[in-house]
Amino acid sequence: GSSGSSGYRATKLWNEVTTSFRAGMPLRKHRQHFKKYGNCFTAGEAVDWLYDLLRNNSNFGPEVTRQQTIQLLRKFLKNHVIEDIKGRWGSENVDDNNQLFRFPA
């Protein structure tokens, strides 16, 4: 391992995970406060899906925790991989709950 390669590896991993997430995360219709939203997912669903992905990824493995998965989802929101249903992003305001998120248009 030469110095400096870890940053590249992290970037490559990040791209791999975000690509898999965008491609594979099931989008559904959800209802919130009597409004219907299409093509979205709850934070809890995203955590479930990502958790599975990470545990089966050789770079992470089965020792990945649900808390680490939530951290990753927070990074997604911070970096505009996802946004909340109102189009907001840039914070790390994600918990393992029914809050609605979607992919940026």
Rank of each mutant, 00 (worst) to 15 (best):
E16M: 11
E16G: 11
V17L: 15
V17N: 10
T18S: 15
T18G: 13
T18V: 15
T18N: 14
S20H: 11
S20V: 04
S20A: 13
S20Y: 15
F21W: 10
F21G: 07
F21L: 10
F21Q: 03
R22E: 14
R22K: 14
R22F: 14
R22H: 13
R22N: 14
A23G: 15
A23S: 15
G24Y: 08
G24T: 10
G24I: 03
G24C: 11
M25I: 08
M25N: 10
M25V: 06
M25A: 04
P26L: 03
P26G: 11
P26Q: 13
P26H: 11
L27N: 02
L27H: 06
R28E: 13
K29T: 12
K29D: 15
H30P: 02
H30W: 06
H30C: 03
R31I: 10
R31E: 13
Q32G: 03
Q32C: 00
Q32R: 15
Q32I: 05
H33V: 04
H33F: 05
F34D: 08
F34A: 05
F34K: 04
K35V: 10
K35T: 14
K35W: 07
K36D: 09
K36T: 11
K36L: 12
K36V: 11
Y37M: 06
G38E: 15
G38I: 02
G38L: 09
G38R: 06
G38P: 09
G38K: 07
N39S: 07
N39K: 06
N39E: 01
N39L: 05
N39T: 01
C40K: 01
C40S: 00
C40R: 00
C40W: 04
C40M: 01
F41P: 00
F41C: 02
T42I: 00
T42R: 01
T42M: 01
T42L: 01
T42G: 04
A43W: 03
A43M: 03
A43L: 03
A43F: 02
G44H: 15
G44S: 14
G44E: 10
G44M: 08
E45I: 02
E45G: 08
E45R: 02
E45L: 00
A46C: 00
A46S: 06
A46T: 00
V47I: 11
V47P: 03
V47Q: 04
D48Y: 02
D48T: 06
D48Q: 07
D48P: 04
D48A: 03
